[in-house]
Design a binder for these strands. Sequence first.
DNA 1: ACTTACCGTAAGTCGTGGCTTACGATTCGT
DNA 2: ACGAATCGTAAGCCACGACTTACGGTAAGT
Lengths: 106, 106
Amino acid sequence: MNYEDAITALADPTRRVIIDRLRSGALPVGAIAEGMTISRPAVSQHLRVLSDAGLLTVTPQGNRRLYAIAPEGVDTLRRYLDTLWDDALAAFAQAATDQAKEKDNA
Amino acid sequence: MNYEDAITALADPTRRVIIDRLRSGALPVGAIAEGMTISRPAVSQHLRVLSDAGLLTVTPQGNRRLYAIAPEGVDTLRRYLDTLWDDALAAFAQAATDQAKEKDNA
DNA sequence: ACTTACCGTAAGTCGTGGCTTACGATTCGT
DNA sequence: ACGAATCGTAAGCCACGACTTACGGTAAGT
């Protein structure tokens, strides 16, 4: 649920591929691993990391397990970047005005 | 400039500490490393990674080098998460309606 | 000019994380 | 009830990255 785990999970390229495959909707593990270069257990491990980070939800359905993107998890990371964005803009504007003042004194 | 490098750079906890220290404005390397548990060269290496990822700007000023958050770099990552957010919401809504239909057939 | 301060880079060590194969558990089909 | 399918976990291997110390290069102070 914390943004640290979320950003760590999304840092891996393979996990971003998995996320991309789930963009259009939930999928079972086999369908996710289909066509990928790594083994299915490896995909399972990645799914585990993504779930623990709050980025995926799991719904067991009979024999299979459906994984889907958890909007709430994405939102926590989004909010972190929003605050960083706000601060970065404010600091940038401040630096611009400071530099203008500096030029006045010249 | 690509979001992959940006998210990889932000995945490291130490680098997030550095980013946090720059939220209020630009700082030289010595001021950033001040009070941190790691050595100053280690901080330099992290600054290098963050700069290469487009998240920081460097402005040499006499003896020192000022590092500041690059709003543009933060924005690229923000946009990636926005698209992910949109898709996640759409898939989530689709799944909800599907489940409602399923209940109708019962 | 000489020293001091500030910073980046090189080389080397070590832990962590991603991958594989092997195995066990659960559920569906017949 | 038995075999097949789907999936998670354990153990082990290996590369990558984060850190250290040591060094060099440039600018400021006196």
